Amino acid sequence: MATMKSVHAAKDKVDVVDVERPVPGPKDALVRIRACGICGTDTFFLHLGGMPSGADGATRAIPLGHEPAGEIVEVGAEVSGLAVGNRVVANPQGALTGIIGCGGELGGIDEYLLIQNAEVGRSVAVFPDDMPFDVASLNEPMAVARHAVNRSEAQPTDKVVVFGAGPIGLGATIWLKLRGVEHVTVVDVIAERLETALAVGADAVVDSATEDLTGRLKELHGEAANALGQPRAGTDVYIDAAGVPAVFDAVIANAKWHAKLVMVAVQKKGEVDLGGMLRSELTLIASQGYPTEIFEVTAELVEHRERFARLISHRVPFSEVGRAFQLALTPGAAEKVVVTFDEASHR
Rank of each mutant, 00 (worst) to 15 (best):
R232N: 03
A233S: 15
G234N: 10
T235F: 05
T235Y: 02
D236T: 07
V237H: 03
Y238T: 08
I239G: 03
I239A: 02
D240R: 11
D240C: 12
D240T: 09
A241F: 05
A242H: 08
A242Y: 10
A242D: 09
G243E: 10
G243L: 02
V244G: 01
P245I: 05
P245A: 02
P245E: 12
P245K: 07
A246N: 10
A246Y: 02
A246F: 02
V247N: 04
V247R: 07
V247Q: 11
F248Y: 09
F248N: 11
D249W: 08
A250T: 08
V251K: 10
V251A: 07
I252D: 01
A253V: 08
N254T: 13
N254K: 04
K256A: 12
W257E: 03
W257N: 07
A259D: 00
A259H: 05
K260I: 04
K260A: 09
L261I: 07
V262H: 03
M263Q: 14
V264K: 15
V264P: 06
V264M: 11
A265F: 03
A265L: 01
A265C: 04
V266C: 04
Q267I: 02
Q267H: 03
K268W: 00
K268H: 09
K269L: 12
K269Q: 13
K269G: 12
G270H: 12
G270R: 06
E271Y: 02
D273S: 12
L274Y: 06
G275H: 07
G276N: 05
L278R: 13
L278P: 00
L278M: 15
S280D: 00
E281Q: 12
L282W: 03
L282F: 03
L284V: 15
I285N: 04
A286P: 14
A286E: 06
A286K: 08
A286L: 06
Q288M: 12
G289L: 15
G289M: 14
G289H: 09
Y290G: 00
P291W: 12
P291H: 14
T292G: 08
E293M: 04
E293R: 02
I294S: 06
I294H: 08
I294V: 14
E296G: 06
E296R: 12
V297K: 06
V297F: 01
T298K: 04
A299N: 11
A299Y: 07
A299V: 06
A299G: 09
A299R: 14
E300P: 00
E300R: 11
E300M: 12
E300D: 15
E300L: 12
E303R: 14
H304L: 11
H304D: 14
H304G: 06
H304V: 13
H304C: 11
R305Y: 09
E306M: 10
E306N: 14
R307Y: 03
F308M: 11
F308K: 00
F308T: 08
A309T: 11
A309W: 14
A309I: 10
A309D: 14
I312E: 00
I312S: 01
S313Q: 03
S313R: 13
S313C: 01
S313F: 05
R315E: 09
R315W: 00
V316Q: 00
P317D: 14
P317L: 06
P317C: 01
F318K: 04
F318T: 06
S319Q: 13
E320N: 09
E320L: 00
V321C: 01
V321L: 02
V321E: 01
G322S: 10
G322F: 04
G322P: 02
R323M: 02
R323I: 01
R323N: 06
R323A: 08
